[in-house]
């Protein structure tokens, strides 16, 4: 089987999310990559070094600069003329593009796979991860998004792929990129952080969240996450949200502070290796999944913890 993997990048370098997808694709067959963007030749060179990669298709065109689905989906659909499976990471970029490709090819996408069980058989979470479905595709081609935490990362070097320029349909002319407000942070990115400290509604407001959670995270060199309630209330931006409909994380250590443990939150972090919960309510559901629980008022416990580390 020939697979085509969407390389996630910012026109400068390959994003980590790509590596787990390469691992998933290699379980299906030959791994080809697609680098679509503008001025992204260096990205293609970098991608060609990923372990196990064959061909790297480089589509360099202003129409692809911002990965607008209207423009890149037809390109991918064209390339699928000689590939059997398209795989993208289950990031917001992958989730935006892949279903558009699937519909153009008239196939049912398999979202957020956790494992490859056979040529056409996969497992995926449903109902916020409260059930795992094993599904078999009956379509001629496969379109898949891959859950990053479920697959090991392919080695970013050691491969010897060959870069080949391709061109596709030009700008569809129906959409344009206006701008972005991307968070800049010195802290580790959530989806690759080894340790995450997350705060919930109990943190009261943005200022308190910063004063209580950030010093602990900095002591541990941890990424910072949040519950939906904390995001909705404006304590932190949307990209901090961990959960069923936010980011899926599985760090070595996840510290949940003032988070009750709703199923939508657990869906995003219960595959963490060690879960630590600090909550003043000893019956909070978070303690049912926590390896280590501390029943305490976070406003005393967290500063004390930060001080003693």
């Amino acid at each position: 089987m020939k697979t085509l993997v969407w390389v996630e990048h910012d026109n400068a370098s390959v994003k980590d999310a790509t590596l787990a997808v390469v691992t998933a694709a290699s379980k299906l067959g030959e791994v080809h990559l697609l680098v679509a963007g503008k001025g992204c030749g260096a990205v293609a060179e970098e991608a060609a070094k990923i372990e196990g990669v064959g061909k790297v298709h480089l589509a360099d065109d202003a129409a692809y600069e911002h990965a607008l689905a209207e423009n890149v989906a037809p390109l991918i659909a064209d390339l699928m003329g000689h590939h059997d499976a398209f795989l993208a990471p289950a990031t917001t970029t992958g989730k935006n593009i892949a279903p558009r490709v699937a519909a153009l090819l008239d196939v049912m996408q398999i979202s957020d796979i956790l494992s490859v069980e056979g040529e056409k058989t996969f497992t995926r979470p449903i109902y916020a991860g409260n059930a795992i479905a094993t599904v078999e595709s009956t379509d001629a081609k496969l379109v898949i998004t891959v859950r990053g935490t479920a697959f090991a990362k392919a080695a970013p070097t050691g491969g010897s792929g060959v870069v080949e320029a391709v061109s596709g349909p030009s700008d569809a002319g129906t959409s344009s990129f206006v701008g972005s407000e991307l968070a800049k942070s010195e802290r580790p990115e959530l989806t690759s952080a080894k340790i995450i400290v997350s705060g919930g509604r109990a943190l009261k407001d943005s200022e308190t969240f910063k004063q209580v959670i950030f010093p602990l995270a900095d002591k541990l060199n941890a990424g910072v996450g949040a519950s939906r309630a904390a995001v909705d209330a404006g304590y932190v931006p949307n990209d901090y949200q961990v959960g069923q409909t936010g980011k899926i994380v599985a760090p070595e250590v996840y510290i949940a502070v003032g988070i009750s443990g709703a199923i939508q939150h657990l869906a995003g972090m219960k595959d963490s290796k060690t879960i630590i919960a600090i909550n003043k309510d000893e019956d909070a559901p978070i303690f049912q999944v926590a390896d280590i629980g501390l029943v305490a008022d976070l406003f005393n416990a967290v500063p004390e913890l930060t001080g003693k580390l």
Binding site: L68, T91, G173, F177, V178, L182, N238
Partner: peptide, 13 residues
């Protein structure tokens, strides 16, 4: 749009 890195704005016909 809410994207992984923050927010992004697009204009659609």
């Amino acid at each position: 749009r809410e994207v992984d890195g923050g927010l992004e704005t697009v204009k659609l016909a």
